[in-house]
Simulated scan of single mutants.
Amino acid sequence: MSLVDGAAEILLVSNDPKHSETGGGHGAKGVDFPRWWAVFRMIELEKANEPDFLLLFESIQDVAELDSATTPSRARVYQVKKKDAGTWTWSVLTGTSAPKAPSPKQSKSTKAITAPVKAPTFEKVSESALGKLHLSLTAFSSLPVEGVFLSNAGCDFPLASGGSAATTMPCSLADLATAHVQLLIDAFASLSPGAPPPDLARVRLEKVAIHSDNLAAPAIAAALELLNERSPEHAGQAKAFVDSLVMQLSPLTRRTDACTSFEKLVKERGFSRNAFLAALADLETVPDRLALLDVWLKQLQTEGVDFMTITSVRTAAARAQRDRLMGGTNISNEIDSFCDDWIATNPWTSNLRPLVEAALAVLRVKFSGHRDHDLMARFVMRAITKCVDPN
């Protein structure tokens, strides 16, 4: 297979509506979950020094990951599903009833009389998550493709080695208990009569540690680690970097029209490594807030603020920056919002100290349970932010 054939086959499969996923079944969080995971995955790929990658959204299942944005030679197709509680059950993910284990009496006695085993039905398999993954894989005749069911919850499937996939992920469908493997082979074979036997080793079950009530945290933590390696002076912008990527991905999940070329498919529904690196490079054009803090604190010291206060404010500002990086708390966000409103309605003075002291007097009344240097630090950081980004 040539590399050009790989791009053509991707285009062909993506234009078949039965292989795409649109929207989510769990409200806004269900829709957002694949986007936040996709940002996390791109950071993961970049940290692994992959020479190239492309993520396609809602073209082939939820996300399709290619090894190249121009000449793909392999692909990985994902069903990315959020679950608020519990584990995924066999019937939900496969559309079939799980095989029943023999009772202790039947296994010990050869004379036990058993009722006839009811033949399994496969009517719902094609609409199940794993059934859809299998159909997407069989749509490719040349390009090497594997499928992944990925969730924040485990899958309650028994393994041939003992135990459950719910606590032993990742694993492939070929690792499941013998009766379950055979049932899946029969179920998938029913979707493509006459085709080669299904290869269950090509479909994996994976779990990602993304809590449904805090989708952003893992991506922000991964971005912080990457920025500490690549651009330490901009590590404080990890949250802004991740938020920006999620915003850029959002319109890619809303396209439904068929694409006439692979290049158009990439443009309308894809996010490449080059786009990721461009977003990373954009950070270099944004001033580092902590570097500007040094300038402001030196000015305050020049205007007579004592050294111990400056030191305490610097330490508190570093804590505030870490807090902001992880999304903040209700009270810290309230303080920041109050500072923004005060800055917007009060004129700047020629010196910094009168401005900071005037703001501190108001903040003391509003947030009396907080120490002066904490309030000063948050005010100064918000003032710097407004200078850097007036919007």
Rank of each mutant, 00 (worst) to 15 (best):
A101E: 14
T96R: 04
E127C: 01
Y78M: 10
L375H: 12
R364P: 05
K105A: 15
E9M: 01
P102S: 05
A238P: 04
G27S: 14
S337H: 13
M308D: 12
A64M: 07
L130T: 07
E284S: 15
T71C: 01
A48R: 14
M247I: 13
R371F: 01
L3I: 05
E225R: 10
F57N: 10
H234S: 15
E284D: 15
P17T: 07
I113R: 11
S20F: 01
A85E: 10
P347Q: 03
G304W: 09
V80T: 12
A361R: 08
G27C: 10
W342M: 13
H211D: 14
L200T: 04
L205M: 09
K29F: 08
A129Y: 02
S337F: 08
Q182G: 04
P99Y: 09
L176M: 02
A281I: 07
V145G: 05
D389S: 12
Q182S: 14
H134P: 05
R364E: 12
G236W: 02
D372V: 03
M1N: 08
V305Y: 00
M247L: 15
T302F: 10
L56W: 07
K29W: 03
T315S: 13
D323S: 12
E268T: 14
L325D: 14
S91R: 10
G304E: 12
H26F: 02
C259L: 03
C387D: 05
F140M: 04
L183H: 07
S97C: 07
L277I: 15
T311Q: 06
E44I: 00
Q299D: 15
S107D: 07
A177G: 04
S172I: 01
G194R: 03
N152M: 06
E146P: 01
D62F: 06
E123F: 03
R378W: 04
L215P: 11
A221W: 01
S312K: 03
R254P: 02
D16K: 05
L375R: 11
W88C: 02
P72G: 08
A358L: 07
C171Q: 15
E229K: 11
A222W: 00
L135S: 15
L150C: 12
A112Q: 08
T256A: 11
K81A: 08
L280D: 04
L45C: 06
R319T: 13
E58N: 09
L297F: 06
L215T: 11
F241A: 11
E229W: 03
I210H: 01
F157D: 03
L3D: 05
D372A: 13
A153S: 15
D389A: 12
S190D: 11
K82R: 13
N15F: 05
W296Y: 08
P144N: 10
I43A: 06
D52F: 00
A85I: 02
D84C: 09
L143H: 05
N391K: 10
L11S: 06
F271E: 02
L249T: 15
S212R: 03
A8Y: 06
M1H: 03
D294N: 07
A219H: 05
F307E: 12
G154W: 02
D243Q: 12
T311P: 01
T302P: 03
L363P: 11
S172H: 09
K18Y: 03
T138P: 00
M247A: 15
A165D: 01
H26M: 09
L11D: 11
H19S: 13
A195G: 14
M169F: 11
Q61I: 00
E334V: 04
S161R: 14
E225W: 01
I210Q: 01
P232Y: 08
H373Y: 07
